[in-house]
Write a protein that binds this DNA or RNA. Structure first.
Length: 598
RNA sequence: GCCCCCGUAGCUCAAUCGGACAGAGCACCGGACUUCUAAUCCGAUGGUUGUGGGUUCGAGUCCCGCCGGGGGCGCCA
């Protein structure tokens, strides 16, 4: 937003430095850190340090101050700048507040929902997220993954990248077969009818099967024999699936659909619209071909039938220390593994979808897996392997330890969402009794899910998270509802105003709260770029909160409808409209709805 | 044994990828609603940034060592 101002000044400085023989060092700009003033600042420590390194005898802080003073004395009058000062090596530019405020507000209102959108970039990016296993139900860990991926996809797209959203459910593997096995054996036809109930029911089957199949210390020889017999049945079923046995395939298709129905219902709740659906089963056969090719080229070693197919990555790279280790890429019985399928999927992404960059949103416990997969792709000769990026995020655990699907120790997304919505409904009845039931219900969903999303996104990626219901569903302070409430308040003022003036000048002394608010609005486009470049939705989450804080402070300090002066009223109305717009844009990038009422 | 992540206020987290006095929320204390939605605002309290060195004009941030916590490591995903 302040790019033109910065560019003008940098040009001035460039000329000046050339004349004075001062080395040119790229300038970094920051908002003025002082309260009550509004403007930009930059410093000349780097410049002074560059002089020092080139052999001149200078004391860096002192020289930085000299340069700052020199620049100050040579800048002359600049449009929009009221005052220039040189302080302790910094050059501080004080804005002509009224003029800049009008410029910012007009820009926001003119560009509307496109305010903050970056210039189109020549790169196609695929973001892969939402990879829950089928036959397991969707828990709070999958939720963090999905909301993180969706927010990242929205950020990348808004920042100007052509973005493809990809889901990748794990619809085959030993875990999936385990559920098929127990379903076929004991539960066939007993499934409940509701989409979520049925998805969750499959999880219960999985837990029961794992209890039957997990060795116990105190088991009798008979129990052990029974367990081993069951396990043999399960593995036989996997081989039947692998061979395309119609009975097993039918069973698989049917139960798989139940999980996918549930997944689609949840993605729908979360406003997630996938462009591409990959499935593990779909890359199963291509993966086997890749293994053959790797063996033929001497990259993989085939130890079958006694052992599996492996790639000794460290050895191939000539590394002394263990880093990538040895990867098993095919079971000795010829069935594929997680990594085998990822090799095939990577090729599919690059060859069929022509992506330039591929981002995998997967928790950080899979770091070694992806390092191995990407390195094997590289050894295999895939140039694009360098464009694969594992966006690792900390996994979600519960107050009493890690979640575990196999032990049934999970917190399901749907349970939390239902609870969140119920709590918001109750809060809304208390705080806003006059609301119609329809409006309340809609707000309850928007705000309840907003609280959940913000709880997930306000923590940086690489940080593990302990999920606590009361904290995640808090509605006060640094939360989603706090931001949504700012949006609602702004909307309320605008509704009561009855219309927005087509233009207004800020021809009065702006309060500190107004300055801070306009400054926050102006920063939004830069925040979009930063969050996208760093793959960090948290950056946007922090911004959205700060923007809401600025609005709430403004709301209390500056009357809009009650003010006598029509010109101030008009200006503030437009400021409120601009704030509402940017709040909505920021919330969108966090996959949070911007409610009208709450 | 090797690799990855994290140690910042009582608790949960920030800090514009080396810059001005390390900031928020929760909790606690004191104020502000016949009001443009109090899911809010204003104020107070709270810190040797795990630790010892190093680089630099300048370090929570970069480098090395140590301590503590979590995760991963050939046929689960």
């Amino acid at each position: 937003m302040f790019k033109t101002i910065r560019a003008q000044i940098e040009e001035h400085i460039q000329h000046l430095f050339q004349e004075e023989g001062i080395p040119l060092v790229p300038l970094k700009w920051a908002p003025l850190p002082f309260e009550g003033v509004w403007g930009l600042s930059t410093s000349f420590f780097q410049t002074a340090a560059a002089e020092a390194r080139s052999g001149q005898k200078v004391i860096v802080p002192q020289r930085a101050q000299e340069i700052a003073e020199l620049v100050r004395d040579n800048l002359g009058n600049l449009p929009g700048i009221a005052r220039v000062e040189a302080v302790r090596g910094y050059l501080n530019l004080h804005f002509n507040a009224g003029e800049i405020a009008r410029r910012v507000v007009d820009t926001v209102l003119h560009q509307g929902e496109n305010y903050g959108r970056g210039a189109q970039k020549e790169e196609r990016v695929m973001v892969e997220y939402a990879q829950p296993n089928t036959h397991h139900s969707f828990h709070i860990g999958h939720y963090r993954n999905t909301v993180l991926g969706e927010s990242l996809a929205r950020l990348m797209s808004f920042a100007g990248f052509e973005t493809i959203r990809a889901a990748y459910p794990g619809d085959i593997g030993l875990g999936v077969i385990t559920v098929l096995w127990i379903y076929d054996k004991y539960y066939k036809g007993q499934e409940p009818s509701g989409v979520h109930e049925r998805g969750q029911w499959l999880l219960n089957l999985y837990v029961e099967a794992m209890q039957m199949l997990t060795p116990r210390d105190d088991e009798t020889p008979e129990e052990r024999a029974q367990r081993e017999a069951w396990d043999a049945e399960r593995r036989a079923m996997y081989r039947r699936w692998d061979a395309g046995d119609p009975y097993v395939r039918d069973l698989w298709e049917k139960t798989r659909a139940w999980s996918l129905d549930e997944l689609r219902a949840i993605l729908d709740m979360l406003d997630v619209k996938m462009d591409v659906w990959f499935y593990e089963s779909q890359v199963d056969e291509p993966a086997k071909e890749i293994v053959d090719e790797l063996i033929a080229r001497g990259i993989a070693i085939d130890e079958r039938p006694q052992g599996p197919v492996i790639v000794k990555i460290d050895e191939l790279l000539g590394l002394d220390k263990e880093k990538y280790r040895t990867a098993v890429i095919l079971r000795s019985d010829g069935t594929t593994l997680y990594i085998t399928k990822d090799l095939a999927l990577a090729r599919l992404k690059f060859e069929e979808y022509g992506v330039d960059r591929s981002i995998y949103v997967v928790d950080n416990r899979q770091s070694l897996h992806f390092q191995q997969a990407f390195k094997i792709l590289e050894l295999w000769g895939f140039e694009q392997a360098k464009k694969c990026y594992h966006l690792a995020y900390g996994f979600v655990s519960l107050p009493d330890g890690a979640m575990s699907s196999r032990r049934g120790r999970v917190v399901l997304f749907k349970e939390v969402a239902d609870e969140a919505i119920a709590r918001v409904r109750a809060a809304s009845k208390r705080k806003n009794p006059g609301l119609s039931e329809e409006a309340r219900e809609r707000a309850a969903v928007e705000v309840g899910l907003g609280a959940m999303a913000y709880a997930m996104l306000s923590v940086d990626n690489n940080r593990d998270m302990v999920f606590e219901m009361d904290r995640a569903l808090s509605f006060e302070g640094r939360t989603g509802p706090y931001i949504q409430n700012a949006h609602v308040r702004a909307g309320s003022i605008l509704r009561k105003a009855g219309g927005l003036p087509a233009q207004a000048d800020f021809a009065y002394t702006l309060s500190e709260q107004e300055l801070v608010l306009v400054d926050m609005l102006a920063r939004f486009p830069d925040v979009v770029q930063q969050a996208a470049e760093e793959y960090r939705p948290m950056v946007m989450a922090a911004y959205a909160y700060d923007l809401a804080t600025a609005f709430h402070a403004f709301y209390h300090a500056a009357p809009v409808l009650q003010i006598e002066s029509p010109s101030v009223r008009d200006a503030r109305l437009r400021l409120v409209a601009a704030a509402r717009r940017v709040l909505a844009n920021a919330l969108y990038l966090l996959d949070i709805r911007a409610p009208e009422v709450m």
